[in-house]
Amino acid sequence: MKVHLRLLGTLPDYYPGDYPETGLDLDVPAGITVGELADLVQMPRERISIVSVNGFLAKADDKVPENGVVKFLQSLHGG
């Protein structure tokens, strides 16, 4: 199935390959989880703090739906 993945913050710097500004269109196995998607694109899980799938927060074990838009975001500090 197809999914669209966007890497935000400085995560594109850790993508092993050329990261297109508009994000990655990927063919992935059906039923893939968010965590498995991170592994698939070789993005270290510890670099990812927040994930959204179709605009909703997701956790590592949540499944990615077909044509889902996934965003990987980074750690937060501040105020």
Binding site: L8, G9, T10, D13, R47, S49, I50, S52, G55, F56, L57, K71, L73, Q74, S75, L76, H77, G78
Partner: peptide, 25 residues
């Protein structure tokens, strides 16, 4: 050495929070 203060903030500033906070609704 910290990823947020050492890498993310210099590159994107505090505006980096816009996407994650929006994603969280």
């Amino acid at each position: 050495a910290d990823e947020f203060s050492g890498e993310i903030l210099p590159e994107l500033g505090t505006a980096v929070l816009v996407e994650p906070i929006n994603a969280a609704g």
